[in-house]
Amino acid sequence: MTERREQRRGFWRENSLTLTFGIAFLVVLALQAVAGHAEFNEQMTVDGLQPLTFGEYLTSSDFAVDVSENWQSEFLQFFLYIFGTVYLVQRGSPESKKVHEAGIEDEQQQRMGDHARSDSPRWAGTKDWRQSLYARSLGTVMGTLFLLSWLAQSIAGTAAYNDQQLRQLEDTVSWAGYVATPDFWNRTLQNWQSELLAVAAMVVLSIYLRQRGSPESKPVGAAHTATGIEG
């Protein structure tokens, strides 16, 4: 019994970062649903229409577009950051590789092919398409998630936009028509600019500021010019 308890405690401790942020995500998503439902029904009441139940709101296009438009901007941020940091550097930032290491690096540095170790992922030691695919798998998956969430946003956005058009007794639009509207690009670009600003701020501020114990920060005593060093 004690051993099982220790195993559970060890699992939570070893995965605390993922579990904490995963739980926090679900809590915030639930709070967003509650707040969004209240706001949506306020507008429905103003328009003289029947409010939706909470369950109906969760399956509505309005809730779907609000969620997906945030997801796609987050995945875009990581997709651009993952590929951008291959070639782009920032002297003094722990978010950057050392200036002279810009590029894809050789197989020895990447522990690929003949340089793979016993604990390396199996595909890293191959010399065919599997190695090439695995070597780009993180960026590829992030890019795919961005495209899928962007597509979900555009589809849900079309439905939400058309619902609003019908309430105002105006003509509806097709998916292609909605993607060309200012409403779609306003929703999209306001999220993109905030994500790009956050990345730029993190890169620059981490040159001069520190957070003791965080791998996202340089050691407290590291020089401002030290690049690619984590705490």
Rank of each mutant, 00 (worst) to 15 (best):
T2M: 08
T2E: 13
E6G: 00
Q7N: 08
R9V: 01
F11P: 01
N15L: 04
N15F: 02
L19A: 10
G22Y: 06
L26Q: 09
L26N: 09
Q32V: 07
Q32F: 04
A33K: 02
V34C: 03
G36S: 02
G36Q: 03
G36T: 02
A38I: 06
E39G: 12
F40Y: 12
T45S: 11
V46D: 02
Q50Y: 06
P51R: 04
L52Y: 05
T53S: 10
T53G: 07
F63I: 02
A64N: 13
V65M: 00
V67M: 14
N70F: 15
N70H: 15
N70K: 14
W71R: 09
E74T: 09
F75S: 01
Y81A: 05
I82V: 12
F83E: 15
F83Y: 15
G84R: 01
T85C: 03
T85K: 04
V86E: 12
V89H: 07
S93R: 13
S96N: 06
K97G: 06
V99I: 14
E101Q: 15
E101F: 13
E105T: 01
D106T: 01
E107I: 00
G113Y: 05
D119H: 13
P121H: 11
P121Q: 12
R122A: 12
G125F: 06
Q131E: 12
S132D: 15
Y134W: 15
A135G: 14
L138K: 14
T140N: 09
V141K: 03
F146K: 01
S149G: 00
L151Y: 14
S154K: 05
I155G: 00
A156F: 02
T158A: 01
A159V: 11
A160L: 01
N162G: 02
Q164A: 11
Q165R: 15
Q168Y: 06
Q168C: 04
Q168T: 07
L169E: 15
L169Q: 15
T172G: 08
T172W: 06
T172E: 12
S174Q: 02
A176C: 11
A176M: 14
A180N: 04
A180T: 03
P182Y: 03
N186S: 12
R187P: 00
L189N: 15
L189C: 15
L189G: 13
Q193S: 01
Q193Y: 05
Q193K: 05
S194E: 07
E195C: 02
E195D: 01
A198T: 10
A201S: 08
L205F: 14
S206H: 04
I207V: 13
L209H: 06
L209S: 10
R212C: 03
G213E: 08
K218L: 03
K218W: 02
V220S: 05
A222C: 03
H224F: 10
H224M: 12
A226P: 09
T227A: 06
T227C: 06
